[in-house]
Design a protein around this nucleic acid. Sequence first.
DNA 1: TTGAAAGCGCTAACAT
DNA 2: ATGTTAGCGCTTTCAA
Lengths: 342, 342
Amino acid sequence: MNRNSTLKDIAKLLGTTPATVSRALNDRSDISDKMKKIVAATARELGYNKNKVASSLRLGRTGTIGVIIPSAEQSFFGSVIHGIVNVAETLGYDVLIHQSNESYTLEEKGVHSLLAARVDGILASIARDTLDFSHFMMVKKKKLPLVFFDRVNASLGVTSVSVDDYSGAYKATEHLIKQGYRRVAHISGPDHIQIFRERMRGYIDALQANKKKYDASLIFPGNISIESGKAGMDYFLKLKDPPDAVFAVEDFTALGVIKELKDRNIKIPESFGVMGFCNALFGQHITPTLSTIDQQTILMGEEAFKLIYEMIVKGKNNKTQRIKNVILEAIPIIRQSSVKKK
Amino acid sequence: MNRNSTLKDIAKLLGTTPATVSRALNDRSDISDKMKKIVAATARELGYNKNKVASSLRLGRTGTIGVIIPSAEQSFFGSVIHGIVNVAETLGYDVLIHQSNESYTLEEKGVHSLLAARVDGILASIARDTLDFSHFMMVKKKKLPLVFFDRVNASLGVTSVSVDDYSGAYKATEHLIKQGYRRVAHISGPDHIQIFRERMRGYIDALQANKKKYDASLIFPGNISIESGKAGMDYFLKLKDPPDAVFAVEDFTALGVIKELKDRNIKIPESFGVMGFCNALFGQHITPTLSTIDQQTILMGEEAFKLIYEMIVKGKNNKTQRIKNVILEAIPIIRQSSVKKK
DNA sequence: TTGAAAGCGCTAACAT
DNA sequence: ATGTTAGCGCTTTCAA
């Protein structure tokens, strides 16, 4: 590997010193234009490319942020990464990715790898299996900028971006009621995850605000899967007074509901209404198309990076950091599965 | 930010030197077990976390690889990233991500950022708009390990992993013929991208191997979108002797075909057969479910990392590198849209 | 088995 | 406007 050229190489060639070359390349005001030009030309000639590793060591910052997601395979996180990386590149930051695969142990390892890499900040979406948050608290204690996105935990006092799950669920439920469905049920997600609890709360409040009685038998505990959608429908249809609409905690669950209804020849949306949550890609391609709540994934990634960027920049000036919790609007996407009214 | 502890801190506390502490922590054989134990204990106590930046500068390698993809938003690339990152983590590597957003300029910038970060190798999937490959040739010239995945270019002599596009297309086309469809058409992708040319070649060869005449009017030039699927069908159905099956270059195109057929009340698969390519998630949830070719995305990511890892390790020993081109099997996933026979 | 010293490439403080 | 010097934290060579 033909050695990368260094400031020293350029300096030697020009009969000057590495310090001057460094200043010239960094466009410092105390260097003459003439010198800047000749340095730039020589650098180009040698194919010089700044060694960010050395620079980072010297500066005590890396211009790199770390991201921890459950899995890049889930298209939701792919979109968020897209948003994060695009803004990061624009602002000159590199992005390191780690996956927890929903495991606490891997998440914890990921945090340590990122700390070893001396990232300037960490963006994270909490793993399903994480119940102990000491690794994140350690980051916080080190005063290293930390931002949670989507899978947040309000009790930790960490800056975050998430979608307004409560209001999204509220809107979804209310939409079904306004469409004339009499009894709106809910299939929930694992209730140790805050966002799913929020969605359930939105569902319950929307019922009560619309003078529907809250009926615990109309809530089926699911686990974010097609299967729990099917199982939920199976359960609901055996009730004495079954529901005629379901607000599912996310789109796969809603898909299970639709599959089960189709198997039983129950007409959607005429006899039964369905709303999901997530705006997964497949929703617009199935029959009937799925009404859902959009989570603004790309925007979420962009906002997450902007938040951490702000923390990094402010941290330099030793300003005190206030915890911010950005809540993105949950946007109803009304398609066929929930539109009873003509 | 309470300063991270260093080898020096540990050494001072133990009345020894940074060199010894370094050796102890790196489990060198020339250090006594007693010393190793006490060093480990002190390190734990201080919450010591090796500064990878300093270590990288000294060692001349970073234990980091760079990945350039068109966009993390495409679920295909999300899956590949998943595969890459998982294997990388297992082998102790960090992963830096850059996106080209299908633009040559951003791709080129990405390569330079990764070089500045002194990554130990680069994995890349070529952007749609990239016609000039000098940035990749520069990487190759530097003898920095480089592996292409999926969007490869055979003429560049770069190690790669990709799916067997030719054989996948061949199998897809032959499957449709064997199902009894008389005239099998093809909607292609941008033909400056090699994988799409390969798929067309597979289509043509399968026709001829099965004694079907190759008819240029049965190939519609598309651009990997739902719209080109629809446009293709519109064109085909106006032909004097229209086809009764389509092999679409990828699943979105196939989805467009299906939508158009449904709009015209043409029965799938009875009157018209459809095959896609990619095995996108939505294919199993639409009606009819979509027959397609699986690309083994996660495996592709895993293989890509393994290849570059091998190159990195061998490079150290100055062994000569042979260019490898790993071709993953293209696996037909037969669902409803192509099954005419009972 | 351990210590002393040097250096990876960069940048900033200080000097001129 | 430029040069000198030192040091970020680690690892390795050489010496003891």
